[in-house]
Design a protein around this nucleic acid. Sequence first.
DNA 1: TTTGCACTTGAACGAGCGTGCAGTAAGCTA
DNA 2: TAGCTTACTGCACGCTCGTTCAAGTGCAAA
Lengths: 240, 240
Amino acid sequence: MIKYLRKDGFETMAKVEPKFHRGLPDERRALLIRATIDCLATNGHAGVSVRRIAAAAGVSAGLINHYFVSIDDLVAQSFDQVATEILRKLGLRVDAAGPDPRLRLSAYLDAYFSPLLVDQDLIRVWVVFWSLIPHSAELREIQKRSAGEYRALIERELAAFAHQAGADKFDAARAALGLFAMLDGLWLELCLNPLSYPPAEGVILCRHWIDGELGRAGMPPAEWPPIEMERLAALAPKVG
Amino acid sequence: MIKYLRKDGFETMAKVEPKFHRGLPDERRALLIRATIDCLATNGHAGVSVRRIAAAAGVSAGLINHYFVSIDDLVAQSFDQVATEILRKLGLRVDAAGPDPRLRLSAYLDAYFSPLLVDQDLIRVWVVFWSLIPHSAELREIQKRSAGEYRALIERELAAFAHQAGADKFDAARAALGLFAMLDGLWLELCLNPLSYPPAEGVILCRHWIDGELGRAGMPPAEWPPIEMERLAALAPKVG
DNA sequence: TTTGCACTTGAACGAGCGTGCAGTAAGCTA
DNA sequence: TAGCTTACTGCACGCTCGTTCAAGTGCAAA
C-alpha cells in the first residue's frame, strides 16, 4: 500500500484530496448554468442567489463572478439554455415520428402535454424567467428569439401538413400564432393547476384548432391518430 | 392669526402637523394592497419588500405586520385584488355591450386586446404572482378560483351565443377552455413582446376559434362586427 | 380637560444578499 | 524538481431583508 506524505510531515494511509478541482471554462460554465436551473426549480425566485447557486454547484461564491459578469448574466444564459434545450427535444420528438406530416404534427402536440413539458420543475423555472423579462433587455431578447423559433417550428409542420392535404389557401403563419398561443395557455394552466383538465383534452383542443383552420381553407378535418395516454405520458427527461 | 404653542415652549406661526394619521383598518389595508401592486409593477420581484411597499404607501415598515401576518399574506391579498378587479372590469365591458350575445362576446374579445389588459404594469405584476404560485398554497388557491371564474365567464357568454345561434350540440365548456387558453397565450405573448403581432390579429384568431367550434356543432360562422381599432384601444384605467 | 385605547413609528436584530480582492494551490511546463 | 500561471477559495464589506417590540401619539370617549 502506498503511503502519502502530508505537508505537515506526518504519514497517512488516506489519499491527500485536492482542495479543489481546476475545470475547463466550458465545463465550469455548464456546471454553473445547470446549478442555476436546479436552484430556480427548487427555490423559485429565491434561487436567484450567488450563494445558493454556488452551493448547488459545489463551488465557492466567488467563482460565479469569475465566469459571469453578474448574477443576471448567469440567469440570462440559463434561460437561453432551457429554451434551446426544450426546443431541441421537441424537434427530436417530431423527427422521431417519421416523415408523415400528420404523425409529426400529432407527435408535436403529444409532446406538449407529456411530462417533457408538463413538469413542475420546468414551470417553476420558466415563470421566474417570465417575471424577469420586463426588467431585463437581455432576457427580453432571448424571449423574442426563442418564441420566434417555437412559432417557426410549428409553422413549418403546419405548412407541411396543409400542403400534403392540398390546402393552398391555408395561412400557416396565422394558424401557427394561434396554435402557439393555445399551447402556451393550456400548458401554463395545466402546470399551475394539474387537475384543471385532463392532458388528453389539451391535445383534442389543439386538433380542433388545426381542423378549424383547415376547414377555413376549404379542407376536411384531418384524420388524427388515436390519443394513447401511455404515448402521451412517455418517460421524458427533466428540464435541460 | 392663531398662534400655536409648540412643545418646546416656543411660539410658531406654522400649524403643528400631526406626526401621522390614524386610519381605519379597511382604509389601511386597501392602501397597503394598492402600494404593493404599484411596487410590483415598478420593481417586479424586488418590489416584494416590506420597506419599499411601506415607502410607497407613505407609512412605516412596521405597519405592514400590524395589518398583515406577513409579507406573503399581503402579496396574496394583492393577487386576489388584481384578479378580482380585472374580472369585474371585463364583466363591465361585456355588460356595456348590451344584451346581444354576439356583441357581448365581441366586446369580451376586444377588451382582452385593449389597454385594459395589454398593459405593461399589469403583466409585470401578473408574472410575479405566477412565479410565486408554485411556492405558496395560498396563491395557488387564489389562482385556481380566479381561473375558474374567468373560464365560467367565457363559458356563459359562449353558451348564450351558441344558444342564440341554435347550436345545441355546442360544447361550451370545451370551447371556453380553449378560448381561455388562447386568450391567455396571446395576451402573454403580446405583453412580453408588443411587436410580435398586431392586437387586432388576436381578436381575429379568437373569432376563428369560436367559428371553428360552432362549425363543429353544425352551425355557420358568426357574423362578427367590424374590428374598430379605436374601440380596441379605448382608454382604460390601469390595473386595480 | 383628562383618560385610555390602539394605531403607528422607528430602532434593533440576525440573516442573507452581490461583489471585490488578497491569497492559496492545482497542475502544466521546462 | 522548480517555477509559473491562473483557477479558485474564502473572507470582508456595505447593503437590504422580514420581523419584533417598546415607546410615542392621534383621537374619541368620558
